[in-house]
Write a protein that binds this DNA or RNA. Sequence first.
DNA 1: TATTGTTATACTCTATAACTATA
DNA 2: TATAGTTATAGAGTATAACAATA
Lengths: 145, 145
Amino acid sequence: MDEQKSDISALPSELRIVLGRLIRRLREQTNTGDLSWSQVTVLARLERDGPATVTTLAKAEGMRPQSMGANITVLEATGLVCGSPDPNDGRQTILSITPVCREWLLASRAAREDWLLHAIEAKLSPQEQKDLAGAIPLLQRLADS
Amino acid sequence: MDEQKSDISALPSELRIVLGRLIRRLREQTNTGDLSWSQVTVLARLERDGPATVTTLAKAEGMRPQSMGANITVLEATGLVCGSPDPNDGRQTILSITPVCREWLLASRAAREDWLLHAIEAKLSPQEQKDLAGAIPLLQRLADS
DNA sequence: TATTGTTATACTCTATAACTATA
DNA sequence: TATAGTTATAGAGTATAACAATA
């Protein structure tokens, strides 16, 4: 087996199709709360990588600073993110997640409220979970290219 | 190595982040033409699975028939998709890609105009391409759950 | 002058609801 | 009555452009 040398021509189509489905599914599932999928993603990044500015976040997510700014505004209004001025550069605002947010993230994970986490556990074997984790860097490289 | 038993808690965040980036990248790259990403995806599916109705396509993509209908309208106007009435059921319209479209798909692939195809070839080793292909069914199962 | 961030506006994609036509 | 498809409207997400404040 494994004699297929390059189905590569089919790969983009398959990937596009499954990404589309997955995206709609994620949007559908995340929107039940008061936060959008993008906003949840920003929180995850802030938790993982620590405080950052709007521009830095926008670059990291591959979107325009204005778009990121809109998301941040919502998160600040909800009290999940707070910004403090950079003492060295008055133009910049350092954004970080609030203790309330950190607590909320932990609690919702413990309660298995995260649809995606739940799906990964329920539908994928431990080995498949590992395979999926291994594919993430590949997707990252595609997104960066 | 491989002693990590369950980074699963980090997996959803990582996946969300990379999907977000990849989606924006894809949208950015596909929009240069006259077709949107969703529309390209529908063409790929019609090419792969053959003719289908709006409702079938909508279910397959995980979106509402109305949303799919809007996409189909554009594709019909562009002459890439044509619909013929089902002889057995006058309510249904069987959609299929036109010869022009099939030619166009082949030509653009031959010309390596597909950004995603190009990225996969340029940024991933043959083994990594295989790994990515192996991860697609896993993503499909997540999207279906 | 260059950069951070904001505001205003428009476009794309999808969803909900109401309607027509066929089974 | 149920199903296939259309039309109209609304909402979320992001992009572009123009602006204010700071470096």
